[in-house]
Design a protein around this nucleic acid. Structure first.
Lengths: 186, 186
DNA sequence: AACAGATTAGACCAGGGTGGTCAATAGGTG
DNA sequence: CACCTATTGACCACCCTGGTCTAATCTGTT
């Protein structure tokens, strides 16, 4: 996944893959008929993992939009730490031109749909200030949180994520969240 | 720039470069001694363009932070349309491990410093709600706007940017900006 | 027209990386 | 021992790499 994510399908090298995986070249082509089959297997695996360990853990019982996003951020971090390359790989798959089979596109669309309903279903819009367009507020709040997460990733780029103590960053994140509540909520 | 941005220095192909540029192979190595010299020339050129056509056009006379960002978004769009690959290329340069000379790092740091002062100098913080941490609000507002811009880029990915009429997107952007003003300002 | 110098193209090169094959072997089980 | 699966890495033909070089063409001057 690392190699494909970094270089895309064509430029990913099977030699690099076996080297970094610490296995012999033969093993790769013993278990997979060719490069494309490996790639498809990985896409399939990643979609599964994303569904079961990320999307399905989202919870529509929390009606406070910001609290729900806060919880999702927790899940996402767990998921990222447990499967460090899955999100990067999936991202690269859907960015690069659609050279992947239709059934993957269909599953992708389904997952996005499911994710959206997990995000927006059963939200209590009455928490928001009266003169606020809540649809736009949803977006702005999401972008705000993504912004923090992206900046954090950039800040920690050099370090190995597994060794980082995230507690202070969660504190900082929650501070930002308090600001969001102050401004968007009544 | 397109080729380097897409593949990084090592994996960028001089053959692809000359093909896409519509010139013969000989020309490249007539004007540049080798691949590295071309790369360094491009970095130099992009830093120049970014300074003169982006950073220097930012304006610290507007004390309203959101209005200032609004104007910067305009400048950035102009700049992006005029030099479509410069930002992508520079982004890839600074993401990939620091294989570039020290004087480039120094210039990069200087430009970032200049950009920061163009962003934050002379801002009237009294516009913000009284119970708001303005430092955090600055960040949140920036992330919100970046979020819109990123989503727009994703939405328009397939189309050639030169042919798009941006007016409706500006309207939409300004709608989001009005929400930001409503929530963050007194 | 004749010449000169600046431009330009692309065939060509050795070297290295490509996806994929295959004979050899290691390891476990009976 | 035999048998089967798991595993390795040398090896292959092929293609692409950065870079060279010759020869052609353009441009301007006399």
């Amino acid at each position: 996944m690392e190699e494909f994510a970094a270089n895309g399908y064509e430029k990913a090298s099977t030699n690099q893959i076996v080297k970094n995986a610490g296995i012999g070249k033969g093993m790769l082509f013993y278990y997979f008929q060719n490069k494309k089959e490996l790639y498809n297997y990985l896409v399939d695996y990643c979609l599964d993992v994303t569904t079961t360990e990320f999307i399905n853990r989202m919870d529509t019982s929390e009606p406070d939009f910001i609290e729900r996003l806060k919880y999702i951020a927790r899940i996402k971090t767990d998921y990222h730490l447990k499967h460090p390359n899955v999100l990067n790989f999936l991202g690269s798959v859907f960015i690069n031109e659609g050279g992947l089979p239709d059934n993957f596109k269909k599953r992708h669309a389904e997952i996005m749909m499911l994710g959206n309903s997990k995000l927006y279903d059963n939200i209590d819009t009455s928490l928001f200030g009266n003169d606020i367009d809540t649809e736009k507020a949803f977006k702005l709040i999401q972008w705000s949180m993504e912004g923090y997460q992206n900046e954090l990733i950039a800040r920690l780029k050099s370090q190995s994520l597994a060794t980082v103590n995230f507690d202070p960053y969660w504190d900082e994140f929650y501070d930002y969240i308090e600001v969001l509540k102050t401004v968007y909520y009544k």
